[in-house]
Amino acid sequence: MFQNVGEMVILFWSTLLALPATWRQRQKVSDQFFEIGNASLLMVCILSFFIGGVIALQTGPLLVERGLGSYVGGVVGFSICKELAPVMMSILIAGRIGSAMAAEIGSMRVYQEIDALRTMNISPIHYLVLPRLVAIALALPLLVTFAILVGWLGGALVCVANDHIAISFAAFFSALRDTVNVQDVANGVFKSFAFALIIATVSCHQGLITRGGPRGIGRSVTKAVVNSIVLIVFSDYLLTRILLK
């Protein structure tokens, strides 16, 4: 375990050192960026819409019952932008994109494609890891921003449509504006940026250390997703503590 952590830190550091080569790899970055967007946008919309709806459904009647209906927009908006959107979308991306990264790099490792790159003096970090890390670091914050907006919309629609809540659109967003400020949204987006680095590093690392044929690829994919989720949740706590100060 500690060896894996050490290797991941080294991989991340090596990728950071390779950042000046990003422009040279821009085509691969843009390919990866659009793949991440294409593969995830619809799922992000559906997931965040219903998360917003569920939060409104759970908290709305309780708050309205106690005469705190004017806080529903704030509660929904705050919880979505600071916690639910960054964490849930990152977990979705870890499952959808992290697994694909681990599988692709893992199969390249198993079928000697990475060895072939090295014999041509092409660094796997420049060629494979850097474009993926940069693409996901750009794409995930954008997806999370989108998810926040869709989540708020989902919450608002449920508040309007549900008879037990019955808060107008304008009242919902007015409460949201009073409670949530730009800093809160920025915190959520910043968290998603950190989670993106975790997903890319963990998934690429698992791919690069894959051994033993198709079964090994399967193992790497599982580990990439599980380790990413564990690290996302763990670092979420740390980041929340830091950002609260």
Partner: peptide, 24 residues
């Protein structure tokens, strides 16, 4: 300059033949 021809060929499956040959 050294090159290796792998047993499996080890071509990059996501690239075309031309892209593989011109990769270096």
């Amino acid at each position: 300059r050294m090159a290796m021809v792998f047993q499996s060929g080890a071509l990059l499956n996501s690239l075309t033949v031309g892209e593989n040959v011109g990769l270096y």
